[in-house]
Simulated assay, not measured.
Amino acid sequence: MTRRIEHKIQKAICEMLHYALPPDAIFWAVPNGGSRKGGAIEGKRLKDEGVTAGVADLHILWAGRLICLEVKTPKGPHSKEGKQSDSQKEWQETVTQCGGLYAVVRSVSEVKDLLDMIGCQKPKRLGTQNNDIDAFFKGEGEIRSERIPTE
């Protein structure tokens, strides 16, 4: 259940990033989790190819800076869900020591706030408004048709 909720949140974040990032920024997902067929042999092959435990779900490269986003479910009052694993905490420490930015995010609005805070935004066209993006961030756009936590 948690995996499906995280998937929906990550999907919505990716849809937002397609609209919100400036032209000099790129993003990608790292499909490091989930189940894999092939057992120990497949696991060894992936490890040999550089798969590393704890790597963040999404990476943004902008202005020479790496921004790593670990997508988690919203916290419940007594929930163990939505917490980083030890390997994810180690990856966070490594990224920040290397000068990258790392954030645990639980909604589209948290990502938007982070991008706003660091100035990583698509420039507005002079004399016009980008109504699709504005509506998207207000939760009125068609992009967010599924019920996904936004706060």
Rank of each mutant, 00 (worst) to 15 (best):
K122P: 00
N32D: 12
D132R: 03
Q88M: 09
K124M: 00
Q121I: 04
L46P: 08
T128L: 02
R144T: 14
V105S: 06
I148S: 05
N130C: 04
I5H: 14
Q92T: 11
V30W: 14
P22S: 07
W91F: 13
L61R: 02
I13E: 05
E146I: 00
G33T: 07
K11Y: 13
I26V: 14
R3K: 09
R125C: 06
R3D: 03
Q84N: 13
R106Y: 04
V111W: 00
R4H: 15
M16A: 14
K47L: 11
K83T: 14
S85E: 00
T96L: 12
R144M: 15
Q88L: 07
I143R: 09
G39T: 06
L126P: 00
A103R: 13
W91D: 04
T94Q: 15
S35R: 13
G33M: 06
A20T: 03
P149K: 03
I60S: 03
N131H: 15
C68E: 07
G100T: 02
A25W: 05
F27W: 02
Q121Y: 01
L114H: 08
Y102L: 11
P123N: 01
G127S: 05
K11P: 02
A135I: 11
C98T: 10
W28Y: 12
Q10F: 06
I60A: 05
Q92N: 14
G119C: 00
V71S: 03
E6H: 06
W91S: 05
A103V: 10
S79G: 09
